[in-house]
């Protein structure tokens, strides 16, 4: 009577064998029907990518180019399909962005190209693909990752954008600074119940939620940095654009509030170890606009100081802020026409577009720096919850 003795890990080759007719079941269970919020929460980060790659390794081992091609095509199409269906769900998009990147890294790490093998163990090198060069497929998967990244940004923007004006401009957290409301301004009433209720804290909580989801999914740290930089760009651009359109936002006290909010955003970056990701720099136009609200705006020296300070703002933006500037109390005055003329004259020779509003839809180009994994493929076990019992560890 045969006894089922489990094989030792060292006996596995880090491949998963599957029948051609099970390919559909594989992508269905692993991609189309996997719920990032349910089963996937307890998976090791990137597990779907490793599983797909281990299946691919087996097809490569069989030297079956057709099997390799159809697996890659089904994988890519299934990822596209799930993103079409659930593309507005940040968790789903983040999950497949990180898995697509992991799959791409695996294709490089095990390609046999010495450039990608520097950090591999001896055993990992033995697991390189043996028959096929998938460089062209790597390009396709990299294109797919770019598409998913853009979708992630859109998804994040849809959640974040409605919070920005309220949290960054309208809501006041510094008590006593604007005790005196700018003259002639009335508080805007909100037409939608939720409007105006977001605070800087809700923005920070949302940023933390995005960040923690991406970390849970094992997103590459370099990719997280790019997402955060893009988030900060959107926050800065939307805030500045609204400031440029609203007189009630152009006061000394709003300048104070914005600077405080920016410092809180910086604090968030520091807390997450993201100070060097370029996110803070994207806020520079907003920071300068806030400073512009607070500096003296009277003498020629003031004009000179403003021109040398506001290098991240266009002339149109500087002039607009000065025109909109509204004194908060009787000790202040409106900015004189003569002063604005002086500024315009000084900035005449600047080479720039006459751009007033920032492009809130701009997306920085994304890159996916190679990030090999030390995980040994032969140790990977497939949880029964994935319903992939038809795969055989080889």
């Amino acid at each position: 009577h045969p006894v089922n003795i489990p094989r030792r890990e060292k006996d596995f080759q880090g491949m998963l064998e599957y029948k051609k007719e099970d390919e559909l079941k594989l992508v269905k269970n692993l991609i189309l029907e996997l719920k990032p919020r349910g089963v996937a929460v307890n998976l090791i980060p990137g597990l779907p990518a490793y599983i797909l790659f281990m299946c691919l390794r087996h097809a490569d081992y069989l030297n079956d180019d057709q099997k390799v091609r159809t697996l890659l095509t089904s994988t890519i199409n299934s990822i596209k399909k799930i993103l079409k269906k659930r593309g507005d769900d940040f968790e789903t998009v983040s999950f497949w962005l990180s898995n697509t990147c992991r799959f791409l890294h695996c294709l490089k790490q095990y390609s046999g190209d010495p450039a990608f093998m520097k950090h591999n163990s001896q055993r990992q090198n033995e697991h390189s693909l043996s028959n096929f060069d998938l460089a062209e497929y790597r390009q396709v998967i990299s294109d797919l990752a770019i598409q998913i990244y853009q979708q992630l940004i859109k998804c994040m923007e849809n959640i974040l954008q409605p919070m920005i004006v309220s949290g960054m401009l309208e809501h006041e957290t510094i008590q006593g600074v604007s005790g005196v409301k700018p003259t002639g301004l009335r508080k805007r009433t909100s037409s939608i119940a939720d409007e105006g209720t977001d605070t800087l804290d809700s923005i920070l909580r949302q940023l933390s939620a995005f960040h923690s989801t991406m970390c849970q999914h094992g997103t590459d740290p370099e990719l997280i940095k790019q997402v955060v930089k893009q988030q900060f760009y959107i926050i800065g651009a939307v805030t500045l654009n609204n400031l440029l359109l609203r007189k009630d936002m152009c006061s000394w006290s709003k300048g104070m509030q914005i600077r405080y909010n920016v410092s809180q955003l910086e604090e968030w970056l520091r807390d997450k170890g993201l100070m060097t990701c370029g996110a803070k720099e994207t806020l520079e136009p907003l920071i300068q606009a806030a400073q512009l609200l607070q500096v003296k705006k009277k003498t020629d020296e003031d004009a000179e100081a403003i021109c040398s300070m506001c290098l991240a703002l266009t002339t149109a933006q500087i002039v607009k802020v000065l025109n909109l500037y509204t004194p908060v109390n009787e000790f202040e005055e409106r900015v004189s026409v003569a002063f604005i003329r002086t500024i315009q004259t000084r900035l005449r020779d600047r080479c720039e577009t006459p751009q007033l509003l920032m492009d809130t839809k701009m997306i920085y180009p994304v890159t996916f720096p190679f990030n090999p994994s030390s995980l040994a493929l032969e140790t990977i076990q497939i949880p029964t919850s994935l319903n992939l019992g038809f795969l055989t560890r080889v």
Binding site: L24, T70, T73, L129, E136
Partner: peptide, 30 residues
């Protein structure tokens, strides 16, 4: 075990072409 012969380059369609290929997963049962 590194292979003794060079790997065969698999030509890949573009992402858009791939979508038009109407691969099996499109035929999944409801």
């Amino acid at each position: 075990r590194p292979p003794s012969r060079p790997r065969v380059l698999l030509k890949a369609p573009t992402l858009a072409e791939m979508e038009e290929m109407n691969i099996s997963e499109e035929e999944e049962s409801p």
